[in-house]
Design a binder for these strands. Structure first.
Lengths: 236, 236
DNA sequence: CGACGAGTTGAATGACGTCAAACACAGTGG
DNA sequence: CCACTGTGTTTGACGTCATTCAACTCGTCG
């Protein structure tokens, strides 16, 4: 049953709208007018075409990077176009809020999957701003802490859970677009890569879960039939 | 060749010295006198015996936690004493600088391996202090960012590298205690757990690397014979 | 139409985990 | 000094889960 491929990974097709204020509330939570203006003042936005590299592993990181709009794959590029994806981000979202602070080099590659707008907040400008407005600095700490929690969780999963459990966990975490329905927003090979498995294994697992009646798969749409069993599986 | 076990994992034997100032420079870098005093004012230290739990996964996290002295295992406890270790920390070191900010729950269990002194910095006290002294807040952001980088690296390794590569990478990262000599400071089962493999596999890998002439193992001492080859192996 | 890329499926290999036994060493008490 | 015990490591045999390699399908684009 070679699952009919539905409209493969919808891409934001058209050109980006003209410059507009950045989505700070999504990135940092509710801000005062003054804070927003201050951030706006030091942010530099630029547009990138499809398949461009936003930054590469090892590049000097001098700014926090925000994905304003579009889709970006984060991962480690091997030889050729073979990218070992870790994560696909859809704007608005932070692309890299950490590297500029600490190792001063980006830890992975970032490639656009669609035309994108990204903004850079040079740390040299941000630093005095944060000194002046400590509330923002605390927001940032919160942000980074959340990232630490997420990555710690991920590391634990990869170390101690097998492939079915990781998939179940991933499915559980996906935002559902309807009652028990979720739409996969990335290529399955990218999902597989994120989960540390091959596309073949992912395919087989999907089939296995279907046959067990936990989910129903049709192309890029997954219906969750037995949420309870899925959680049990993920909990391993 | 059943490698002679040398003085297994030295433990800090004796009772802890009386209260003393906390090692802030190690934790946050060089500080002014005023900053040190301010931190000292809101830190609460306490001593714990061996095998005590500092905090457990899911506990409410209301403070940053510092390991002042002693050794703590970070991991996820399963049933009984079977702890899936992620990391062994030796004081002075941060135990958990993130959880209090973000999910407000600790993400893993922390168990003492030796008598320890730990200090808590309640976020409720720290927050106003950071507002007042933004320089400290930036230091903290740096700290968290470094953690993000470390965890990201780790996740990548677990996702895309096999066991030999992970071991080689780990060996490469260990601080050597002599020219090409390094002393393992933890039980091998803990090392294995950190690397996401079983003790048996680790043992076999060590042997395999010895036979290939990359390292020489005697108990808890490892001599690196071919650093170049080790790096190549880790780079997979 | 043919070429290409994404996904699926099957068979074979291999890496790693599990289970069980043996061994080394430290500490104990005779 | 010698058993005896407990913990940690090593080794071997075996099973299994996941990757690899290959063929095949489907849909899209030229």
């Amino acid at each position: 049953m070679p699952a009919t491929t539905l409209a493969a990974v919808p891409a934001t097709a058209t050109a980006l709208p003209a410059a507009s204020p950045l989505p700070w509330p999504v990135l940092l939570g509710p801000l005062t007018q003054a804070e927003t203006q201050a951030l706006e003042a030091c942010a530099v936005a630029r547009d990138l075409p499809e398949r461009a590299t936003v930054f590469a592993r090892g590049d000097a990181a001098t700014a926090l990077v925000v994905l304003v709009e579009g889709e970006v794959v984060l991962g480690q590029a091997g030889a050729g176009p073979a990218l070992k994806a870790q994560r696909v981000l859809r704007g608005p979202q932070w692309l890299d809020a950490a590297s500029a602070w600490a190792p001063h080099r980006h830890g992975c590659d970032a490639l656009t999957r669609t035309p994108c707008r990204v903004a850079r907040l040079p740390l040299a400008l941000l630093r005095p701003l944060l000194v002046q407005r400590p509330a923002l600095a605390l927001r940032l700490a919160e942000l980074l802490a959340r990232e630490v929690a997420r990555l710690g969780e991920q590391a634990h999963e990869l170390m101690h859970k097998d492939a079915p459990a990781r998939l179940a966990g991933w499915l559980r975490r996906q935002p559902d677009a309807g009652p028990g329905v979720l739409r996969l927003g990335e290529r399955k090979r990218d999902i597989a890569s994120q989960l540390g498995m091959t596309p073949e294994t992912l395919s087989r697992l999907m089939r296995s879960l279907s046959e067990q009646g936990l989910i129903a798969v049709r192309g890029y749409t997954v219906r969750v039939l037995d949420r309870r069993a899925l959680e049990r599986l993920a909990g391993a």
